[in-house]
Simulated assay, not measured.
Amino acid sequence: MADRIAVNDLRRHAISTETAVRTSVERVLNSGWYVLGQEVEAFEREFSDYCGVGHCVGVASGTDAIELGLRALGVGRGSRVATVANAGCYTTTALMALGAEPVFVDVDRDAKLMDLGHLKQILSEAALDAVVVTHLFGLLHDMESILDLTARAGVPVFEDCAQAHGARRGGRHAGSFGAAAGFSFYPTKNLGAVGDGGAVVTGSADVAGQVRRLRQYGWESRYRVGVSGGRNSRLDEVQAAVLRAKLPLLDGWNRRRRDIAARYTREIHDPRVRCPAVHGEEYVAHLYVVVTEDREALRAHLAEAAVMTDVHYPVPDHRQPVLTGAGGPVAALPVTDELSASIVTLPCYPELSDEEVTRVIAHVNAW
């Protein structure tokens, strides 16, 4: 049997970046300073410059970035926040931690992003305190249209950029459109650390200052807690140093991901498999997700050919037991439900060889 093709292969990624990563880690070890030091400060400057915003605050994870970023925007207990339900429950988890109420918006069947018509309807029905826009699978949403709707309602927008590092529209990067944005640096991300990590980016000095306080116990100054809702959520020096080493390589990796995705879309011809559109720089192909009515048959066929697949994500937020267990009404999200039953993720990462991409295409078409 041919060699197994993984959905993602972090070992290959580690080999390709080994020298730069080892040098970065050794620099931290030799410094004797491991938390909130020069590496974090340098990465925050470099990443904020990359995103085209004034401020970046490193935190411990992408989910913390959502929670602390929203808290800095004034979201708290009783707040109503619009979000999608097809993005792995990460934003919903943050909202529950804040005591806020998720208001679920259905998604567009093709883009799989927040449906603008449904968002407009929700904005017209009752007041919202914020909207979280998730750039799912690496596709940057049409932020001008989103902001046009939310500005008229006076509602701030938080961007969830966990899967969209480097995506661009009109020369602007993901994370530069909303009042603030959250990034994850989990190892599988387009820009990944060697452990957990995250960041909040924003153009507001006030929001950035609030997140800096919240990430370290709510300190106004050392050992003086002046802000409620704080915690220990700090990006450590090792992760920051690794991210600094990888950041200059991100755009090249994204181009490779986009090339692989474009080949899939152009060359997969099985009529039972619906592929995403070919996109430009607004798409960084974090995940390549197709739709089929017989998901398990396709996955079994590909597994037999040593092509691994995954499902991102099989249980939408509005059907998670943590929400449905209370016995309340389940949101009506027909497209979200349809997609959750039919999506399949194919291998897509920069280290895939052209021959492996050809194999994946051939095996899908042979189904």
Rank of each mutant, 00 (worst) to 15 (best):
R4E: 06
I15K: 13
R22E: 14
E26A: 11
V28K: 10
L29V: 12
N30I: 03
W33Q: 15
V35L: 10
E39F: 09
E46M: 05
H55T: 00
G58D: 09
A60E: 05
T63V: 12
I66G: 06
L70T: 06
A72W: 05
L95S: 04
F104D: 00
R109M: 04
M114Y: 10
H118I: 05
A126F: 11
A126K: 15
L140I: 05
R152V: 02
A162S: 11
G166Q: 07
G166K: 08
A167C: 05
H173C: 09
A174L: 03
G178M: 08
A180R: 09
S184F: 00
S184K: 03
T188M: 07
N190Y: 03
A208I: 09
R215D: 03
G218K: 10
R224T: 00
S228A: 15
E237D: 14
A240I: 02
R244I: 03
D251S: 13
G252V: 15
R257T: 12
R258L: 15
A261R: 04
R266A: 14
E267A: 12
H269K: 14
P271C: 03
R272I: 01
V273T: 08
E281D: 15
E282G: 01
Y283I: 08
A285G: 07
R295Q: 07
L298N: 13
T309N: 13
H312I: 13
D317F: 07
D337Q: 09
L339I: 13
T345H: 06
L346H: 04
S353E: 12
R359Y: 05
V360A: 03
